[in-house]
Design a protein around this nucleic acid. Sequence first.
DNA 1: CGATCTGTCTACCATATGGTAAGTGAGCGA
DNA 2: TCGCTCACTTACCATATGGTAGACAGATCG
Lengths: 217, 217
Amino acid sequence: MADPQDRGARAPSAGGRRRDGATTAERILDAALASFAGRGYDGTSLDALAASLEIRKQTILYWFPSKEVLLEAVTDRSAAELSEALEAALLRAGTGWSRVEAVVRSVFRLAVRRPELLGLVREMGRLGPPAATRFIAAMDPLVARASTFLETEMDAGHMRRHEPRLLLLAIYSSVIGMLTEVEVLRAFGEEPTARSLVRRRAEILDLLRSALLTGEG
Amino acid sequence: MADPQDRGARAPSAGGRRRDGATTAERILDAALASFAGRGYDGTSLDALAASLEIRKQTILYWFPSKEVLLEAVTDRSAAELSEALEAALLRAGTGWSRVEAVVRSVFRLAVRRPELLGLVREMGRLGPPAATRFIAAMDPLVARASTFLETEMDAGHMRRHEPRLLLLAIYSSVIGMLTEVEVLRAFGEEPTARSLVRRRAEILDLLRSALLTGEG
DNA sequence: CGATCTGTCTACCATATGGTAAGTGAGCGA
DNA sequence: TCGCTCACTTACCATATGGTAGACAGATCG
């Protein structure tokens, strides 16, 4: 019954609110996202996940009848959140470079505020068709919108001509690159500061601006 | 005894050659690299690895006394191979943009010819200090050399001024981005062709050129 | 030939993992 | 108060996993 997408996960909104206002299912989703993004899907055990939440593994399996269903739920929610954030940035006023910059800034902001989302995106690469396809399909309308926008700007002569999807990829890669650098720094024992990240972002924006902008900016 | 780095792995050169000319240890390293890069460290079981080689798990543990030592061996060898390839590209004649382009091209070539190497680099991100630190340390001299080269070029006015390590990261991210796109395409069921990859590379080189080059080229 | 070494194997083992079965207790409508 | 559902628990289980111990075959060497 219900919709065919539903593989058995209960509605996360069900169940009473806890002291902190989050339902158990929501807390599980949050922790699972963080763990999948940080330690990977295979590196995450339901036992460890449950322990971090101070609940029993079977509570997780009560809300999400299998680990795979949990992954799907995490994926769907993350795709929705990403779409929402970027959609909002795209809708913001402005045209030409200022709009591109606004979107890129919002991507960076998201990467700093919710690095788990980007971490999950990276994890998607290894998780084959079942999860990744779903995720990509969920993001597709947004990608199409962004591509159209970039194309319009190029047609208007505000930007150097490039393949729009490649540009998106370049922006995405820049963010991933920044995240990578954060990890590299951590591996060397230096905790990256918010200041240094902001400086990085400025540099990357500068790089992108040089690459994209025509004289008419 | 031996050197303190040696955690017990036997010398991979030991043991008789097989029909195909590779020792057992080398075959294990090859398969482990592919699997670690493709399915991740946690997603790789010694049993599955052994099965893919048509040997028994205990043969793996004979050559590499633990999974972790195997990872270290894979990491070290990959770092060496990466270093070697990029060092060779750096040593190639030329200055200014043509030299940058030569290096970038060699990175792409490597990414296409041995995607496992780049996949392992990406995997390094999640694998904490033990493995990642080792890998980064092994790559560090090369990064320093490349940074120096870029700085020289900027001083000579051949290139727009940027933070050299950031530039390296941008180049690296472009390659990773290309790989990511390959996975995205696969997720959609389209096998990326060599032609499309070459076209991508050309676009990325163009992007980088726009971003980096000054009038003096 | 007999001893030893090398490379691989079979036989196990303890633990961890995803998952099932069967409760338990609080809250709630009749 | 009876019965039911909801949220979560304890008690298991089969399998997979990394790892140990030891046997065995073939090559090497005295």
